[in-house]
């Protein structure tokens, strides 16, 4: 339908840039950038060695109003979730996806009522597993799919996210490299990068937490190297 418009727009762009159609030099420049994906300027803060990354991640996430806890094994997760809900006087319910990594955690020993699937909007608490993290900004990276439905990131009021310490990268660029390796040149339908709970300053530029997305974001860092010896 808009094929002719496409041609018209593209030929105007070509003309403005003084380019002929099928100009090989220009094509090579574009191909080189798409294949080479130059990194540009990655801030020193985003290039820390892995030991310091987790510490920076925690500092930055807390600065963005998230709360952070650390566990040494997946077995500790149910206890940590129970503690979090109890301390905030939240009902003992939890919605989560089909992520196998989370099913290592046995919630049956707690009083938490766990349900699986996407959120319809009536869940108060949700649990997700992050794909990666970004130390530079204290950011979580989550990908869509049945393992971690995107609706769990936005509809419930309290979002709890597990992240494995060794998936915390220094900067966003390294996370993208991880995603490219995993998804072979394309991306999942949605990649969410999340830095703190939702907020708005639309009324008199006053910052309020909990706009349309979660009011609270709780990050559970799973650091197996910190686990007690078995």
């Amino acid at each position: 339908m808009s094929g002719s418009t496409k041609d018209a727009v593209l030929s105007r762009i070509r003309r403005a840039n003084g380019a002929r159609p099928n100009d090989e030099e220009r094509q090579r420049a574009v191909e080189a950038r798409l294949q080479g994906r130059p990194l540009g300027v990655v801030p020193a803060r985003g290039q820390l060695p892995s030991a310091e990354r987790v510490a920076l991640f925690v500092v930055m996430a807390e600065a963005a109003n998230a709360t952070v806890a650390q566990i040494g094994s997946m077995a500790e997760l149910p206890g940590e979730v129970a503690r979090y809900l109890r301390e905030r006087n939240l009902p003992a319910t939890l919605k989560m996806g089909a992520d196998r990594r989370l099913s290592e955690a046995d919630f049956s020993a707690t009083a938490i009522e766990v349900t699986q699937g996407a959120s319809e909007g009536d869940d108060l608490n949700s649990l997700s597993h992050a794909e990666a993290g970004i130390a530079e900004t204290g950011t979580l990276v989550l990908t869509s799919g049945p393992d971690n439905p995107t609706s769990l990131n936005f509809l419930p009021e309290n979002h709890i996210v597990v992240i494995q310490a060794d998936t915390i990268e220094g900067a966003m660029e390294a996370v993208f490299e991880r995603l490219r390796e995993r998804h072979g040149g394309t991306l999942p339908r949605t990649v969410n990068t999340i830095t703190g709970p939702s907020r708005s300053a639309d009324i008199e530029q006053t910052l309020l937490l909990g706009a349309h997305g979660p009011k609270a974001l709780h990050i559970v860092v799973l650091d197996r190297t910190a686990a007690p010896m078995q």
Binding site: A64, A118, S144, R189, V191, N192, T193, T195, S198
Partner: peptide
Amino acid sequence: VYTTFSTGPKREADPD
């Protein structure tokens, strides 16, 4: 807070 990357419509296995 949210930088969101969207690629195409939902995939076959996607619940949302």
